[in-house]
Amino acid sequence: MSTPAKVAPASSSVGEGAPALLLAEFNAPSEVLHAAKALREAGYTHFDTHSPFPIHGMDEAMGLGDSKLGLIVFPIGLLGGTLAFTMIHWMNNIDYPIIIGGKPASVASLPSMIPVMFELTVLLSAFATVFGMLHLNKLPRHHHPIFNSDRFASFSNDKFFVSVEATDPKWSAEKTRNLLEAAHAHHIELVYDDEEGGEDLDEAPLGSPSTSPGKVHA
């Protein structure tokens, strides 16, 4: 729902290109909730909302649906259990059969395998959860054009934003702006990407003023 509270200084480069996204600013969570609902109803899919705290009902308003994470974690968890069983079975019963505590070197000793199966299930499930979450969130991502906006930093303080990506099939600079205006956005800006994907920050000479509005066209 909200992106990390990382605030990049405004870019000073002046490259031109296609607009990356439209950023609308709101003052209240209910407004951004309604804007998200309006966008979803208009058929937009590539948009996001940014707020200092979770807003109840936003998942429904944005039409996000259920998380797909479970579909990733469940099979990988089962794989972990199977992997542990196969490993112990091969090592203790096939490759080097060994009798411990009078227990047969066969599947009949399943109870002794279950703790390892359990642990490996949990371990792989945890990995699948963390990395699956990162994948679904398209992370790690080092740069996003939204940080080119000066105003965006306040999303982690007291403002609420809706961003509509230019990649959205329904995207149109004019129509999308109208829609957001109708949703009572109190400030709308078109944000451009850097030509070189944000690397211009490194190329900027030391001490150069960073107060220019950059790629932001209000």
Binding site: G101, G102, K103, P111, I114, P115
Partner: peptide, 12 residues
């Protein structure tokens, strides 16, 4: 339940 079972099964 399994914790109880496994310890008893293993120690026999």
């Amino acid at each position: 339940g399994f914790s109880q079972f496994m310890l008893i099964w293993y120690a026999a």
